[in-house]
Design a protein around this nucleic acid. Structure first.
Lengths: 203, 203, 203, 203
DNA sequence: CATGAATGAGTATTCATTCAT
DNA sequence: TATGAATGAATACTCATTCAT
């Protein structure tokens, strides 16, 4: 995003990001053409280029905005929780709700098109991703140290958790059997308690 | 893939599948060009087309072979286990070892390029994927019924498990801190016992 | 053929149609490459594709324009003539003059490349061709009924006439022994009076 | 044709010519591939090349054989007829019957693909075509001189006649309303007597 | 005779991007 | 801001033909 809208009207920039995110999501970054996006925006290709620098830059903006969203809706809301177990539970839940209830296309793009970015842009997104991984690792480490969990490898636990959550967009479709809240609770519980563990209610 | 080699000479087909799988893996299906594959095979593009029908058909053959591998190395080895818990544990372990130790590029291609397939070919691969999901669901159902696990939703458990395992290719690099056996055990244990559960040793 | 030019500047479209018609005429549709046409237009291939949808669509536009020309210069000028003999004579003459004097490449393309068109486009052109055949048949029928001609099969007469005229592009070269007017008269006369008939002058 | 069959079995050569003629007829010379012909002959492409020198040479052989057929079935049977009117009538009839009853694909190929031939081969076919045109012109000249016909331009009459007949393959389909004999008679009559002339019976 | 493998040259078409207006 | 026109480079794929076996 180069400029923010100054007035109430949603900036053209933001509309483009949203449209492009949707299209990258539907067709994939490589198969989506600038023409597709221009058409969807009711612009010519040249017109579109007045708002963006390049296709890759557009992808970067989308991913950066996706990370903004994630940090705003997940990280920033749980980072301050003291108790590691509560922090983990809140993180898990918020992250699941983000990908099931809000379902921002930008997050899907981040998960699916990470290889399409090169150079600085790639580094910038990766840095932010790693920040989250380290946050999770730290949380698992504290949890183990505090005796609140058994001796799991913090890295392994972090990636296991990321796998569970990041895979959701591959199978979850809204309006299914489980509503998002139930799903978030059940999955959190499954992760924390495992298949064989005690019922979730029995903290 | 037009005709099979009759003599003992190592089928060119197999070399092409392997090479193409590697290249699709490295660059992605869309960014990999037929020229890339031809070059890697020390063939001209036209020479390559003597052996394959189309880029998409090549992708399908790779994925079908990946499913062959999976079914051979995982499904067929655990399907006959009677006890659902042992069956689950064996499945989880074998699946993890497949993606960490054998690391067939074909599996990565299946996970990353599923949208590139269209029509019949897409259906055929999806059918085989779903067969595995149903096998997992059935296992979880039996496990819950037998009292061996708490009341988890079988579908949810299946997708959670798939997420954990299918995400591995995104972060695991061989030669790391944990060898494949340790990792497989630890992840299986984490899935079964959860973060808060009893130590792995205490089955 | 995506959008029409709004200003007075001679539409690029028309130039392309004309150039392509000439090239399809000279080399044949299959042997003419889009590069040939682009070169002739002093454009790159991509530049050419800014104006057309596909090679086949280009062919269709040429043929459709050829049919426009034919209907404008022949059909519309004779359709209203009441007397069937005068109508026939005028049609024959106008049609012959169209292919000898005006010699629009588009007509040659229609005659020579009709099989290259497929689907809807093919149907549309065929419909217009058949309209002319039916017009001729009707004229012959009226002529016979009115006693102005002997009992010829209207269909047969129509195709015989079309053969005579449509074959002209195979042998006639401008600037030859007979000028176009003389040729048109002589051929009309030959068709009407036959080889054995009375001299042409004796209408 | 390079070699003739010595025994009763039809030579492979002849089968290939026939098959290729059929395929060139159906798809057109440019759109028919050597693979199409090889497939139809249940041969590989390389196998096909044991029998022919090149695609163009194959086309030439087909056309040359078509000319053989024509000269055998038409020219040689009428050339000796003394009376020019009878000669013309016989020629017209035989030529029409050749393209309606025998319908050799080779003739259609000659009519449709004449531009595909280059160099010597093209010249050779053209020479034989011109021989027929000159034969027709001579016949018309004699007919006019003998007072058996009115003063028509012999060249024009020849090309008019060729147009009528050579166009037949564009519209005639066997099994239609008119059987071949009737059609041949009617068309001959139309050409000789014209639209306005006396009934054909009244020679 | 026959074939599998291979190739060089070519095909139509697409795409991200630029620029004069 | 916006656009129509244009382009260089690339893409998947095809074809007539050759050759060692």
């Amino acid at each position: 995003m180069r400029k923010r809208a100054r007035r109430g009207r949603p900036a053209r920039q933001a509309q483009i990001l949203e449209t492009a995110a949707r299209i990258f999501c539907e067709k994939g970054f490589d198969k989506a053409s600038m023409g597709d996006i221009a058409d969807a925006m009711k612009l010519t290709k040249a017109g579109l280029y007045h708002h963006i620098r390049s296709k890759e830059e557009l992808l970067y903006e989308i991913m950066a905005y996706g990370m903004d969203l994630f940090e705003q809706k997940v990280l920033s809301r749980v980072a301050a929780i003291d108790d590691p177990l509560e922090r983990l539970r809140a993180t898990f839940r918020a992250h699941v709700l983000l990908v099931t209830r809000d379902r921002p296309k930008e997050i899907t793009v981040i998960l699916h098109e990470s290889n399409a970015l090169k150079g600085r842009n790639r580094d910038r997104i990766n840095t932010r991703k790693k920040r989250y991984v380290r946050f999770l690792e730290k949380t698992f480490r504290e949890l183990v140290r505090s005796g609140g969990a058994r001796k799991v490898d913090p890295s392994l636990a972090a990636f296991a958790m990321l796998g569970m959550i990041n895979w959701i967009y591959q199978w979850y479709r809204p309006g299914g059997r489980l509503d998002e809240d139930t799903l978030a609770d059940a999955l959190t519980d499954l992760f924390l308690g495992g298949i064989l563990g005690r019922p979730a209610g029995a903290r």
